[in-house]
Design a protein around this nucleic acid. Structure first.
Lengths: 220, 220
DNA sequence: ACCTGAACACCGTTCAAGT
DNA sequence: ACCTGAACACCGTTCAAGT
């Protein structure tokens, strides 16, 4: 038993550093991901990380690419609409697993191999389904904007589950119903209703776009 | 002339601190916005800021609310569809002026008065146009997801303007056209075409959603 | 009431030194 | 080739002290 408390994988490399960073961000949040804590998690001094990555930015780029690798590649064996629908739902699930990812995307500009592979597959599937280059670009832009934007907003809305959150929201609504009557009405009569599922909201907008794309592909 | 180099406004207060933070983020980027630099910009010691704000988070919340205050309130004197279209374009313009805002939204959860006022006005306009509560919620969720997601993606794509960026992109495409053929094709034959305007991409998706909402309001 | 300076507990990163 | 410890230039924030 020469092992200290932190399990040291056979040999450290870039991928293992990135995976440890993903785990740390999932557990403690991205704001507490530091090179020093990452070192501790790997049973290593923080400065040793620089043997495997050039800087923290490379870790962050790797994390984003790892997240893209988790997205289900759309199958070309089903209708394009079902495939794009499943892809959207898969992205939303992945973003729910890694809530820090959506915020990280904003600051990173160097797409990794998994990211490029994913987009290449999606474009290829749309082209095979008969989309023109222009329409494929429009479709990808519209769908991804919607999916990422929804994930971004979902992160900001405090979850309605849990009685305390519910009570807090009710109180807030009560206080502001004079100043913001329409917002108060929408909150009380819609968002706070038992059985309200934010996922329905996601699928409503998603189907709006998918139906619109179908119409654009087959102009009347 | 008792004034030192930094203009000191008559008396400092929360709003002036927030406005200085917005200016600093616009100029130098959000990543270099620190309490110390904010102090320098205001001709004050960093620690004096805590007389006006509780912490940096309050500054960030204020910045987001200031950005919402810049969005054109939708007029109730025109058709809902035109009003929502203009609102979307206004948000995109405001986000272009303050590119840091979209990334900040992700981490802030306390909406300020301008934010609440804006959303209340929009919901009120949709309700007046005959939208049910449910459909108004769906409409706002779909549109805002799309708008913010588009802004998020727009920030990640290096601008195609400028010959150097153009050449760099061409080279990149050349290198990866074997591995990512569809991505390469879309980039070369669409994105890099002269006259390509990313704004058209925005309006395509926007009109897709607006048309879909119109159909949802008047089911066939 | 507002501002200051010193201090604390953190950051990312460099560098010379070790094995 | 990989890891370490000390150091540098930064952070946000607290606190006792000044006016």
């Amino acid at each position: 038993m020469t092992e200290p408390r932190a399990r040291r994988r056979a040999r450290l490399n870039r991928d293992k550093v990135v995976q440890a960073a993903v785990d740390l961000a999932d557990t403690d949040g991205i704001e507490s991901l530091s090179m020093r804590k990452l070192g501790v998690a790997l049973g290593i001094e923080a400065m040793s990380l620089y043997s495997h990555v050039a800087n923290k930015g490379e870790v962050l780029d790797g994390m984003i690419d790892a997240v893209f690798g988790e997205i289900d590649a759309p199958s070309s064996r089903i209708k394009w609409k079902s495939a794009m629908r499943r892809r959207a739902i898969s992205i939303r699930q992945v973003m729910a697993r890694h809530p820090w990812a959506i915020g990280l995307m904003e600051s990173r500009t160097a797409p990794g191999p998994a990211t490029l592979r994913h987009h290449d597959t999606v474009i290829g599937m749309l082209r095979a389904a008969g989309f023109s280059i222009e329409l494929a670009a429009h479709a990808l832009s519209a769908l991804d904007s919607y999916i990422y934007g929804f994930a971004l907003q979902e992160r900001n809305v405090p979850s309605v589950t849990g009685e305390t959150a519910r009570l807090a929201k009710l109180l807030l609504t009560q206080l502001s119903s004079d100043e913001y009557p329409h917002l108060a009405e929408l909150t009380v009569k819609h968002v706070l209703q038992t059985g309200y599922d934010h996922g329905n909201e996601f699928e409503f907008g998603l189907d709006l776009i998918l139906d619109g794309l179908e119409r654009a592909r087959h102009p009347d």
